[in-house]
Design a binder for these strands. Structure first.
Lengths: 336, 336
DNA sequence: AAGTTTAGCGCATACGTTTGTGCAATAATA
DNA sequence: TATTATTGCACAAACGTATGCGCTAAACTT
């Protein structure tokens, strides 16, 4: 079956291209195409299994029904889960999703945006690895709507959907304190990221609220497993090591666990641990990990909804949403 | 900045559209455009930050530099990992990836293929949820190259890259047998999938090789956590329960562990467990899980390479590859 | 019977590229 | 100086679709 087009159908049915186009796009009434013509055309289209070229449609209508999704690492379960709900939600509305894995690199992100722009995507969702949102805001203002997920920026005009990182971290830290911990090491991701800043602030404020401000210890530089591993190694080798670790992501957590496993220490007997993020595996770890969870599904589906609304209305929407974090209790924290 | 086009640059530099096009696409020499003209045009393009419309290019050249990737569940770490390497490899060659999450449903897969076709993707990678590859083969033969990953079909003309499931399962089962297990329950995914068939065959043959053929017990119906959970519950409630469980995927494994945790049994003291698939979390489980791993990176990068080669050569490539599985030892198997 | 409405459809253009071909002007050759 | 070769570029068509507008013929009106 050679590629079918409006033209080929037009030739075979004897109707003009425009009539075929209108008949097939359901605009028969609007343009007064006779029922008989519509029927003939639709029958022929079905017979030869015609599907219109989205490329040509896009060129003509300037809409691609495609949205771009930029994430720092698609193999991180957190982003994989978000991608999952975004893809299926988008699909249910007739949109497909192009995924760009930015590898936590701002440059790759910028290049990715450019690539998406040249592809004329209708909108962009981004969990940014960047330090400033300038280039994102430029895009948003003049051409294509952008919605931030998870990672956001201070004083940005861009809409975002994220977690209440501050409160989540505050609660997680408070939990440790209530269990008697006073030396809690906090291992962070890239410090310039706002969610990270909020988490460390929550950590700090919780300490201060209990008069432990001077015990604060925030270390680490990125969201890699390696970072979690090395910082934990370091922390454990101190003369007075911490009694608890607060890992600011599931990746950092894994590194921390690895370092602890390599030591003589046992969780939670010798050292307690609390993490940020959630995923199904954390319940099966040894022991199950107490963690401040992010509402992944809600983040994804809210973000895509806002984006689609912005696309369809043609207006920029200024929705900034922080969804509540929830503490899930495992067995990784002991009383002191 | 309004949308720049060849036309706007043409107007501003005084050169014709075709000259601008050739200058910018590096065909200056071929079409005898003077160095001076090329320089002027490139300067202007850079100044106004011009990027050609891929949509228009696609319409003209019939190439979209986009490939479609269909997976049964992007939030399954196995597929997330594969997607990750595919996305970055593709990108390094100037291709972007549209991901379709088929939710293990053949109908969604077919519809997804259709959607990708109407988008004129240059090629398709698919981890199929289907029972027969007819519709895939049709596409491959007449228009767009398709490469199967992980899931493949008997006697198909489609190229594929997958794991040597038979050998992996054979070795995993043999390992259990060597450790003294004779009642091993095998919990499978959708039985019509060829990889599943090969795994169960490996399991069976290993049993037979040790004269345990009559002990074979293959249960389960799909790759869900739920399936692993329920089948394990069932197995454990038998009057003579198995001493070991062979879970044919990481998802089934999770369900099995959950069921075991809800019982009085301990892994590996009371019951041993071996799994298929690999991911970083399995090392951190309680206990670390012995498993037959699949070479995820190689599968992904080989598949995309074969696809791109097929795209660029315009020829169908008949490469069928089974990469070796490797047994990784955790602490989930005890000697009997 | 002459004019007016309405139904039913086709023409032509535009979207932004790529590319085969043609046509001047200049340079090389005789 | 007349002819040919070469340089440097522009014209125009094509990809497949959407859509404003206009045209014809039939039906209706008075």
């Amino acid at each position: 079956m050679a590629k079918e087009t409006l033209i080929s159908i037009s030739e075979r049915t004897g109707y003009s291209i425009s009539t075929v186009s209108r008949a097939l796009s359901g605009k028969g009434k609007k343009y007064r195409i006779s029922d008989k013509a519509v029927e003939i055309i639709k029958a022929e289209a079905k017979k030869c299994n015609f599907t219109p070229s989205l490329v040509a449609q896009s060129l003509r209508t300037n809409k691609t029904r495609t949205i771009g999704l930029l994430v720092p690492a698609i193999d991180n379960p957190f982003f994989a889960n978000i991608a999952s709900v975004i893809i299926t939600t988008a699909r249910s509305q007739g949109y497909t999703v192009i995924i760009v894995d930015t590898l936590e690199m701002e440059l790759d992100e910028q290049e990715g945006i450019k690539s998406l722009l040249s592809r004329n995507v209708d909108g962009i969702l981004v969990a940014s690895s960047g330090q400033t949102p300038d280039y994102l805001e430029q895009v948003n203002e003049t051409s294509i709507p952008i919605v931030l997920i998870d990672r956001f920026f201070p004083n940005t005009s861009l809409p975002y959907v994220t977690t209440d990182n501050y409160k989540g971290a505050f609660e997680a830290t408070s939990h440790l304190i209530e269990y008697g911990h006073s030396r809690i090491a906090c291992i962070q991701g890239a410090p310039f990221l706002l969610p990270v800043k909020e988490r460390t602030k929550g950590y700090l404020d919780a300490l201060k609220a209990h008069g432990l401000g001077k015990n604060a210890s925030i270390v680490g530089s990125n969201f890699s497993i390696q970072n979690g591993y090395l910082e934990t190694k370091l922390a454990l080798s101190q003369t007075v090591p911490p009694t608890a670790i607060f890992a600011l992501s599931n990746t950092i957590l894994l590194g921390a666990i690895k370092a602890i496993n390599e030591s003589a220490l046992k969780i939670p007997r010798d050292i307690s641990i609390v993490s940020f993020d959630d995923n199904i595996y954390l319940d099966y770890l040894n022991p199950p990990i107490t963690r401040a969870t992010q509402p992944v599904d809600e983040i994804g589906s809210l973000a895509i909804k806002i984006l689609l609304q912005s696309i369809q209305s043609g207006q920029r929407i200024d929705t900034k949403i922080q969804l509540p974090s929830r503490l899930i209790f495992g067995n990784s924290v002991s009383r002191i």
